[in-house]
Design a binder for these strands. Sequence first.
DNA 1: CACCATGTTCCTTG
DNA 2: CCAAGGAACATGGT
Length: 313
Amino acid sequence: MGIPIGGPRIPRVSCHVPELPEVEVLVRHLRPLLKHRRVRRVYVLRPKIVAPGSPEEFAKALRGRTFSDLDRRGKYLVFTLRSSRKPATFQLLGHLGMTGRMYLLPAGEPWPKHAAVVLQLDRDQFVFEDTRYFGRLTLDLSPLRKLGPEPLERTFSLDYFIQQLQRSSQPIKVKLLDQTLVAGVGNIYASEILFRAGVSPRLSARKLTSSQAERVWIASREVLTEAIQCGSTVPLSFGEGRRSDSFFYFGRAPGALDYYAERLFVYDRADQPCSCCGTPIRRFVQAGRSTFFCPKCQSNKRGCEPRPGSKTV
DNA sequence: CACCATGTTCCTTG
DNA sequence: CCAAGGAACATGGT
């Protein structure tokens, strides 16, 4: 086993698209930076981002408020702000969509081309940029109500998971993307989770044996936990190498991206040999999304013995 | 130029 | 009413 077949490479998409681990890393990074910072001015450059509310009400609600906390729910960021005014505290919901980024920029730095919302703080600007404008930064918290349990918390029990799978005939890969089943798994990690579990992405959810369901449940938690530990696939800092220094992205350990890229066993590796058995990884489309898998390791017949464990490389 | 990539919401169909 | 499938959204990269 061991991964380095094909050498180090950077997956095309994975370093851009945030799923639960990327959001978790961002939240941990931003939380201390935002705490106690007051919003001086609000600029909404793309009204769609603050929908369904209007830019005016968004600006009015935020101006003068102070950030007090930041949490994650699924792929959402939940900002808490306070003030001495009317509602003593209220919350703001953020979602990075596919290309969203959030970071602090020193006051006076020019905004990026696709800046969607900028909050002027005392000596920094909080920037939400999003080239495709699929993201959200809004007063509307209602999307949270539809979310299923957090995969890394007790509410996501094995019993619950098995019970939910029984209710659906969709392929397990598609089911893992269902945010009402479990919140935070996206297209990249869904493939990775099933590879680790040795389960075919085509298998109908209700046809998983309890042993297979348990393996998927365990793999979900392992894959997401390790991704968080690795600093996630999103590049975390671009302080150095870019003109302005003190210029934050997310702040990552050096080399984290390359290190993580090697840990994606199947995603975006079509035609490359499986790290476990050498069989070429295959790609196909499910629910309009790419799925990557090893036809041997995930054949449901048990094939590849050495499962890629947490201690590879 | 055509097509593909991502996540969520909305619409349609069964 | 619900499950499932597909289009739309916006942009940049190949």
